[in-house]
Design a protein around this nucleic acid. Structure first.
Length: 278
DNA sequence: GCCCAGGGATGCG
DNA sequence: CGCATCCATGGG
């Protein structure tokens, strides 16, 4: 369990072996952050935190400590989760490698927009597109720009999304943004997992994988196992198969890992992506 | 110049 | 249903 103190404008994490800032930011679950040596800036919605990693502690400076306490999932016992997952032979090495990852509790709407952009795309391009949207449609908060609200993104045209580099996803984004309401996003949070999935995949640009990412990173649902190209490769590598039906892989892995699926998926993804195993 | 990226929509049988 | 094909764009 993580030990930390909450002060007025900072959180001090006292046993950082359970929390590696670089691993957590660099494992593909968030696109708005900057890392400079041992300092990191992290943006979520209209908020920002500055993290300083030292040998024996991590200092999180922010004006909204409650938001980032939840955002960095500080109350969850990752040691227990990792001990469970290490029992799986295929996962033990990946858990060891990415042992400092924490699954972020990010903003649902930000995740929805971000993961529509992520489809068949690479992370550096995804980051640039999102940055463009923040700069051109988000609020200027002085040192940084907020992620645009739904209302702000409704002012964007298809051509604006093209300029953001969305390519063929631009019309999909336009349609989804202009169909969505604030009420629908808010009510998503209290829906059942099945209802969340049904609603998300009814939107243009969202299929099962993107929906699973929105649920995992934006709705706190851990019983999902997003299958992207890397997970697909890992699966075939370990199972010695050539399966291309991702829905089938998703079902199998979700049933296998149950309520720890989201964690297991992140350890798999981070380990095999970094080690470039085919 | 080529392959690929945290896939989804569409059409065809 | 399952499966194949197409899709903008730039990183590596």
């Amino acid at each position: 369990m993580l030990k930390y103190e909450i002060k007025k404008n900072k959180i001090i994490v006292l046993n950082p072996q359970e929390f590696d800032v670089v691993q957590t930011l660099d494992c593909g679950q968030i696109f708005r952050f900057q890392i400079d040596k041992n300092k990191a800036k992290v943006m979520s919605k209209d908020k920002i935190a500055v993290l300083t990693s030292e040998a024996d502690k991590i200092v999180i400076e922010t004006t909204d400590v409650k938001y980032f306490e939840n955002f960095f999932d500080l109350k969850t016992d990752y040691e227990g989760i990792k001990n469970q997952l290490k029992k799986d032979n295929m996962l033990s090495e990946a858990v060891e490698y990415g042992g400092g990852i924490r699954i972020l509790n990010n903003d649902c709407f930000e995740m929805l927009v971000s993961f529509i952009i992520s489809a068949n795309n690479n992370i550096s391009r995804i980051k640039k597109s999102i940055e463009y949207l923040c700069l051109n449609f988000g609020s200027n908060l002085g040192n940084y720009f907020a992620f645009p609200t739904l209302k702000q993104l409704k002012t964007a045209t298809i051509d604006d999304f093209m300029k953001a580099g969305l390519g063929y996803r631009a019309p999909q984004m336009f349609e989804t943004i202009n169909k969505l309401t604030e009420e629908e996003i808010e009510s998503l949070k209290t829906k059942s997992q099945k209802e969340q999935m049904e609603f998300l995949v009814s939107l243009k640009g969202i299929g099962e994988k993107v929906a699973n990412c929105v649920m995992l990173f934006g709705l706190g649902v851990k019983n999902v196992f997003p299958v992207d190209t890397w997970i697909n490769k890992v699966y075939n590598n370990l199972a010695k198969t050539k399966e291309t039906n991702r829905a089938k892989i998703t079902k199998e892995l979700t049933e296998k890992y149950g309520n720890l699926s989201g964690y297991a998926q992140q350890y798999f993804y981070y380990y095999f992506r970094d080690n470039k195993i085919k």
